[in-house]
């Protein structure tokens, strides 16, 4: 399954109305999308809890419903 995940490289998203299609095409657009995801990843590295891994280890919930 990891193989499949690696194959699906992210190529971007769009940020306007839901029914619009991504217009980006060609190398210029690909570069822009790559830079968008890079910016997003930078941002996530910044806001990810400083002790995120510890937090995840301690995150235990009681079942509900």
């Amino acid at each position: 399954m990891q193989e499949r995940i690696r194959q699906q490289k992210s190529t971007g998203s769009e940020q306007t109305a839901p029914s619009e299609e991504v217009q980006a095409s060609g190398s210029e657009a690909s570069e822009k999308l790559k830079s968008d995801i890079d910016d997003l990843l930078d941002e996530i590295d910044e806001v990810l809890e400083s002790n995120a891994e510890e937090f995840v280890k301690n995150y235990v919930q009681k079942g509900g419903e």
């Binding site: 995940i5 690696r6 699906q8 490289k9 992210s10 190529t11 971007g12 998203s13 769009e14 940020q15 306007t16 839901p18 299609e21 991504v22 995801i37 890079d38 997003l40 990843l41 996530i44």
Partner: peptide
């Protein structure tokens, strides 16, 4: 191309970041 729906579908949006992080850190 599921990534086209990253602004609508939660799993696609989340996976985009997970994939990006794995690529950035050579997994």
């Amino acid at each position: 191309q599921p990534e086209k729906a990253a602004h609508i579908i939660d799993w696609v949006a989340k996976k985009r970041v997970i994939d990006g992080m794995m690529a950035r850190h050579s997994e």
